[in-house]
């Protein structure tokens, strides 16, 4: 380590790792370029942090992009209060460890009107506690750019979304009128109130994410790895049964089994899969022979075809 870098009091100095393969390196370079460009062109960026694996990769890339400086924007977590307990613990540890500015926002209507995923159904609940909450938090912060970890391979409407995805002052996305995006020259000009969502992971696939986590040794919420956990079967999904707010319906029983999660969201809406993959290598091996997509476990995507596009048009990330 040369003298001039040591002098800068950088927290968490990096460690040496074997070089990335050219495929992951190209994806990493692209993401870092996007982070730096947004940070330079916008007045008040923020990074959406959902605590999941994609967010973990996103955060790691942000730290790389701005090293040896600090990450020059806050992280925003929209907390529905229905996240897995282990997610919240992990979030707070990471914020402390990496010296991050963490902003947590919960839509007050949740508590005021008693809105829960059980009482109001997944569609209305998601609209209020995620989409509306996100709009509130972005407006309150006056952010003109928000990084997200969305990937184009996740879902059909995402496949058409730009890396700089323009939003109107009321956070609407107009898929038919997107700004053209050529080369890696991004148009960051917006008027007051308008904003962009920026997606540095646009060109990553789920396998890329996992291989990068492995190569870079990125810490994850333990729920991604299989363990003996209590669960309840409901609507064809295995729901984690550890939160006292989960009330058993007639006929339901708590079972035990080796399960893990491919994506993490609100625990009542996120289905587990049966798995014995208890470490990264096993998860990747399992993934490479997987025959269903990761979003299969998400109740909100299944409401109707084109449902993600509809939610996105209304301001969902």
């Amino acid at each position: 380590m040369p003298l001039s870098v040591q002098e800068t009091e950088v927290k968490n100095p990096p460690v040496s790792r074997p070089p990335l393969d050219p495929h992951l390196k190209a994806l990493e370079n692209e993401a870092i370029h996007i982070f730096r460009e947004v940070a330079a062109e916008f007045e008040k960026p923020v990074m959406l942090y959902s605590i999941g694996k994609d967010s973990s990769v996103l955060l790691h890339l942000a730290r790389k992009a701005f090293y040896p400086g600090r990450v020059p924007f806050p992280l925003l977590h929209v907390d529905t209060t229905w996240k897995f307990r282990e997610m919240i613990e992990f979030r707070d540890q990471i914020a402390e460890k990496y010296d991050l500015d963490l902003v947590v926002h919960t839509n007050p209507r949740g508590a005021e009107e008693g809105i829960t995923p059980f009482s109001h159904g997944s569609a209305l609940y998601t609209d209020i506690m995620k989409t509306e909450a996100l709009r509130q938090a972005l407006d309150a912060g006056g952010y003109d750019a928000a990084f997200g970890g969305a990937r184009r391979d996740e879902e059909a409407s995402r496949a058409k979304e730009r890396i700089y995805s323009f939003r109107t002052p009321d956070h609407k996305w107009d898929p038919r009128n997107q700004r053209p995006e050529l080369w890696n020259v991004y148009n960051g000009m917006v008027r007051k109130g308008e904003s962009v969502r920026a997606f540095p992971l646009s060109n990553w696939t789920e396998v890329d994410i996992w291989r990068y986590i492995q190569a870079e040794d990125i810490p994850l919420v333990p729920l991604y790895y299989a363990a003996e956990r209590p669960y309840v079967e409901r609507d064809g999904m295995m729901i984690l049964a550890e939160d006292p707010r989960l009330e058993l319906l007639p006929g339901e029983t708590v079972q035990q089994g080796m399960i893990r999660f491919r994506t993490l969201g609100c625990f009542p809406l996120t289905g587990a899969i049966r798995s014995t993959a208890s470490n990264l290598e096993e998860v990747i091996a399992e993934l490479e022979i997987a025959t269903v997509s990761e979003r299969q476990g998400r109740a909100i995507d299944r409401d109707q075809s084109g449902s993600m596009e509809k939610k996105k048009r209304e301001g969902y990330f």
């Binding site: 002098e7 800068t8 009091e9 370029h33 701005f66 040896p68 400086g69 600090r70």
Partner: peptide, 10 residues
């Protein structure tokens, strides 16, 4: 893209 100055010497 940007100039980074985390400390006086860098």
């Amino acid at each position: 893209q940007r100039v980074v100055r985390p400390g006086e010497s860098f």
